[in-house]
Amino acid sequence: MTDTPTVFVTSATGSQGSSLCYELRKFGWNVRAITRDSRSSSAQALSAAGVHFTTGSWDDEAALREGLEGCDKLFLCLVPNLEDFEIIPRQAALITRLAKAAGVRQAVASTTLGCFMLEEGFVPPVTLSPLFEAHLHCMKHMEQAVIGRFEQWTVVRPGLFMANFIEPKIQMGYTEPKKGTWTTALTRESLLGLVDHVDIGRLAAAAFKDPATFHGRKLGMVSEDLRVQDAMDQLAEAIGDGRSIKAVHMTEEEVAQAQALAKDGGSGLVIASEPSLRYASGYTDLDELRRLLHGLTTFKQFLVREKDAVAKTYLN
C-alpha cells in the first residue's frame, strides 16, 4: 500500500462514476474500476485519464478481486433493475465483502433521495406505491452494505438528475419534454430537487479527501430546488427555438392510474407518478451542502455546459 490512495469506483463509465474518476485523477490518486466493454468510448476516455480497468461484471468474483487489489477506498453506486430488485442487494453484498477482504477502509455509497423515507421511525406523509417502495428498499440494501461495515462511511442520496432531460439518459423514461409537456405528481408549489452528476462526483471526492468530516453522514444531495414549471421554462429557453414546455400536474385520480401502469413503464414513469416525492425537498439541506461543496451547479449552468447535448436531444 502506497501513500497515494487507491479508489475502486463502481459504475465508472456511468455519469456519477466517471465524474468521480476524473475528480480523483485531478488529485493524482489511483483509480481502479471494472467494465464489461473496455472498448467503449467512455472506458477509453477514462483509461486515457489514468483509470485502470479490469474486464468483468459485478457478479464476477475473480474480476472483482483483481480490481479491488490494493484499494483502500470504495465508491458503491449500482443501477437498479426495475424488473429484479434482488440483483442490487446481491451485488452490493459481494462487492463490499471482497472490498473488506482487500483492505478497503472507507466507502461512499450513492443511492437515492427517497431512502430518507425508510429511516427508522419515519412515517411517509403518503403511502408509497409498491414499485417505488420496492425500488427504495433495493437502494437501502446498498446503503446497509456500507453503513457500519467500514472504518469510515458516507451515504449520498441524490435527487432527480439534471442529465435525465438530455441524451443519453432521457431514453430511460424522460422523453416527454420533447413533446412539449412533462407530467408529474408534484404540485405547482412542490420543489423539484435537481442534481448535477458532476456535483455528486465532487461531493464523493470531498468525502474521500476528508473522511473525518463526512463519516457517518447520510446526505440528501441536490444542486438546486426549482418548481417544476420554472425548470421546464429554463429547459425550453436553453433549447432556444421558441418552444414552450408545460408542466402538467396530475390529479389524485391520474396519479392512481399512472401508478397502476408504472410496473410496465420505465424509471421516468415510476418517479413522475410518485406523490411522496412532493415532500422530498424536506430531506435536503442546501445551506449545508453549499458549506460542504462550494459552487453547486444551477440548472441553467448545467444546460449551458451541456448545450451540445441539449441540441442533440431536442433539435436533431
Rank of each mutant, 00 (worst) to 15 (best):
T2Y: 05
T2S: 15
D3K: 06
F8A: 02
S15Y: 11
L20Q: 04
K26D: 13
A33P: 02
S38P: 10
S38M: 06
R39T: 14
S40D: 08
S40F: 04
S42Y: 08
S42E: 13
A49P: 07
V51D: 04
T54V: 08
T54H: 07
E61C: 03
E66H: 09
P80R: 00
P80M: 04
E83L: 12
D84P: 08
I88M: 03
L94N: 01
I95Q: 00
T96L: 09
R97Q: 12
L98A: 11
L98Q: 07
A99I: 05
K100W: 08
A109Q: 04
L113C: 12
G114T: 07
M117P: 02
L118W: 04
L118G: 11
G121V: 09
F122S: 06
L128S: 00
S129K: 01
P130R: 02
L131T: 12
H135P: 01
L136D: 06
H137V: 12
M139R: 13
M142N: 06
I147N: 04
R157N: 10
A163V: 04
P168D: 08
P168G: 11
M172H: 12
G173S: 09
T181N: 12
W182G: 00
A185G: 03
L186N: 03
E189M: 06
S190I: 10
L192F: 09
V195C: 03
H197F: 10
V198W: 00
D199F: 00
G201E: 01
G201Y: 01
A204T: 09
A204E: 00
P211E: 13
F214H: 03
G216K: 01
L219K: 05
G220T: 01
L226C: 03
L226F: 11
A231C: 10
D233K: 04
Q234Y: 00
I239Q: 03
I239W: 07
R243M: 02
S244M: 13
K246D: 05
K246P: 04
T251K: 15
E252K: 15
Q259I: 02
L261W: 04
K263N: 14
G266N: 14
V270N: 02
A272L: 08
S273G: 07
E274D: 13
E274A: 14
Y279T: 08
A280F: 13
L286D: 01
H294Y: 10
G295Y: 06
T298D: 11
K300C: 10
Q301T: 14
Q301V: 10
F302I: 04
V304R: 15
K307C: 10
D308N: 11
A309P: 07
V310C: 06
T313F: 01
Y314Q: 06
